[in-house]
Amino acid sequence: MSDLDERLLAAHEADDRGALIALYIEAADTATSETAAGFYLTHAYVFALELNDGRQDALRTRLKAMGRV
């Protein structure tokens, strides 16, 4: 299991949604396929929407550019 996977699991366990947004963005930025990047960005976007986080617009823009919104 990678360090990122461990940090994602810990953030889920702690229900730290702010950290989850950042970690899913990190996962998307390091993903090896567009499908994986879209998966991670979608998760980051959902958490950003739930928290009304300022990153939601940038996440939507990225997803839209990928044809996923």
Rank of each mutant, 00 (worst) to 15 (best):
D3N: 12
L4I: 08
L4R: 03
D5W: 01
E6G: 13
E6K: 13
E6F: 11
R7C: 06
R7D: 08
R7V: 07
R7N: 05
R7E: 11
L8H: 07
L8C: 14
L8K: 04
L8T: 12
L9Q: 14
L9P: 06
A10W: 01
A10L: 14
E13P: 07
E13D: 14
E13M: 09
E13W: 10
D16M: 02
D16A: 12
D16Q: 05
D16R: 01
R17I: 08
R17L: 11
R17D: 10
R17K: 14
A19N: 06
A19V: 06
A19L: 04
A19D: 08
L20K: 02
I21C: 03
A22Q: 04
L23V: 10
L23H: 05
L23D: 10
L23Q: 04
Y24V: 03
Y24H: 15
I25K: 02
I25V: 13
E26N: 04
A27V: 06
A27S: 12
A27E: 09
A28S: 00
A28D: 00
A28Q: 00
D29P: 06
D29K: 05
T30V: 06
T30L: 01
T30I: 04
A31C: 05
A31P: 04
A31R: 00
T32N: 04
T32M: 02
T32E: 07
T32S: 04
S33K: 02
T35P: 02
A36L: 05
A36W: 00
A36G: 10
A37R: 00
A37T: 03
G38H: 03
F39W: 10
F39I: 06
Y40E: 08
Y40R: 03
Y40N: 09
L41T: 00
L41M: 09
L41N: 01
T42P: 04
T42V: 08
T42N: 11
T42K: 04
H43E: 12
A44D: 02
Y45T: 09
V46L: 07
V46T: 14
F47E: 08
F47I: 09
A48E: 00
A48Q: 02
L49Y: 08
L49W: 11
L49F: 05
E50F: 06
L51N: 05
N52R: 15
N52K: 14
D53G: 12
D53E: 13
D53N: 14
D53M: 09
G54Q: 13
R55F: 08
Q56M: 13
Q56C: 12
D57C: 08
D57T: 14
A58K: 04
A58G: 13
A58R: 07
L59R: 00
R62Y: 02
L63P: 07
A65W: 03
A65R: 12
A65D: 14
M66A: 14
G67K: 06
G67F: 11
R68Q: 15
R68A: 13
V69R: 13
